[in-house]
Each structure stands twice: as structure tokens, then as C-alpha cells.
Amino acid sequence: MPSPATPLFPWTHADQHSLESALTSHVAARDFPCVGAKAALGKGTLAVLACDRVDSAWDDVRIHDALMKFAADYRAAPSLFRSLAVVFAGPDTLDEAAFEAALWRRLQSLSDKDVWRGQSYDSRVSADPDSPHFSLSFGGEAFFVVGLHPHASRPARRFARPTMVFNLHDQFETLRADGRYETMREAIMVRDEAVAGSRNPMLARHGEASEARQYSGRAVDGAWRCPFHYTGAEERADG
């Protein structure tokens, strides 16, 4: 199996090697359902960034640096099956609601840094988390986020450390254009059903319902409201 992608920066977290190894072993496991992540691992394009705590802003600038570089590298040489996984050393005690809250605090902070650094929101998606066309945007590229943590109710979202996997929205559009998206989506759902005993009721295609409901992995009802608010729209209005 090819080695994981080269670290994004010359300096690393003390647990980089152990957390990266744990994640790559998890993705490589036979019962892990996401074939896209497996493809990225096989190509050596699953980049892993180890960080401290998912409930702390300590590494947020570092994470945003990684997202900016990841987006720029993709634009310079677009190719399928690239993912950036941010793996946190802890805490490993958060229940689903607490993990969801921490995940959205990190994403809000990262988005605010994108605005502060003068990055434009990807025009192909909406910044409104209630919109069926919503995606997050960093460095001018739209991203879909998958949260993993130890206490996820869905086995496919269960991993020993809190993790956020950033997947480029443009890759999904490329798969659609190539006629491969539905086949891959169905393969993932079948594999997930084999592990969990049922299909994930939260999954929806982009344009049908807001993907924000899928990020944390927690099953939410119609009353759930995403805590994210894009501040760049306010700055443009003020200008």
C-alpha cells in the first residue's frame, strides 16, 4: 500500500505519526465503507494533519493554512480522490451532541479566518447552511466535511480520535460529469448498510437538502438548525 501523502508543513504535531498511522489503518480496514477515502489512500493523496483538541482553537490557524495549501495544490493540478483529514489527539469522551458542537465551532472559526484572509467564497455553492446548495469554502474551494469520533452511533463514523475529513466539492462534480457519482454513492451506501444494518437516513444528494445536516454524523430531525453563519456576507454588505 502506498505511503500516506507527504505532510503539508515541515513542522508537525508530536502525535503526527501515531495519529496518521491510526487513521490510515482505519481507512484501509476491509469494512470501512467509503470507497473514495480508500481510493485517496491507495493513491497516496490522503493528507493527514495531526492537531491537539477538537474543542480548542489552538490549531485553527494551522488547519486553515493546510486548507489554503490543499485548495491551491488542487487548482494547480486537479485530480480525483484527494482528501485532507484533520485528526485531533482528543478529547475522546465527547458524545454525539458535544462532538457536533465542537465540530461546528472549529468550522466557524476556520471560515472566519478565510474571511479575515480575504478569500472569496466558492461561487458554485451557497454560504447559507439552510440552502440545499450549501458547502463550506476555504481558499476559494468548496468542501464537504465528514466528522468521525469514538462515540458515533453510525459505525462508519466511528474512529478512536475526533476527526474532520475535508473533501473537495469539485471532485463530486467531476464524478457526476463522468457518470460515476451515482455508482460510487451506491457502493458506499451498500457497504455502510452491511456494517450498520441499515442505510444512513441523513444522506442526501447535493441540491436536495443542506449537506450541513450530514457533517457531524449525528441523526438530526427537521427542527435542527445549523449553528454556522458566514461572516463574509456581512463584510460585503458593510462595504
Rank of each mutant, 00 (worst) to 15 (best):
M1K: 04
P2G: 01
P2H: 04
P4Y: 03
A5D: 00
T6V: 05
T6S: 03
L8C: 02
L8M: 04
S21D: 07
L23E: 09
T24W: 07
H26V: 08
V27P: 00
D31F: 01
V35H: 04
V35A: 08
V35L: 07
K38V: 01
A39E: 00
L41I: 01
K43I: 05
K43Y: 05
K43W: 02
G44V: 05
L46C: 04
A47R: 00
D52P: 00
D55M: 04
D55E: 04
D55K: 08
W58K: 11
A66D: 01
A66W: 00
A72F: 03
A72R: 09
D73R: 04
D73W: 00
R75C: 14
A76Y: 04
V86L: 02
F88K: 01
A89G: 13
F99S: 05
A102F: 05
L103C: 11
W104E: 04
R105F: 00
Q108K: 11
S109T: 09
K113S: 11
V115M: 13
S120M: 09
Y121K: 08
Y121H: 15
Y121T: 08
V125Y: 13
P129G: 13
P129F: 12
F134G: 13
S137D: 06
F138I: 08
G139A: 06
F144G: 05
V146H: 07
H151Q: 15
A152W: 11
S153G: 13
S153H: 14
R154S: 15
P155M: 09
A156R: 07
R161T: 10
T163H: 09
V165S: 02
L168I: 06
L168A: 06
Q171M: 05
Q171F: 01
F172K: 04
E173H: 10
E173V: 09
L175F: 08
G179I: 06
E186M: 14
V190P: 01
R191A: 11
D192A: 10
E193A: 12
A196N: 03
A196W: 01
G197I: 03
S198K: 11
R199I: 12
M202C: 12
L203K: 14
H206F: 13
A209F: 12
S210W: 15
R213Y: 09
Q214S: 10
S216C: 06
G222V: 12
R225F: 10
F228N: 03
H229W: 07
Y230I: 09
G232E: 10
A233C: 11
E235M: 06
E235F: 09
R236E: 10
R236M: 11
D238N: 06
G239Y: 02
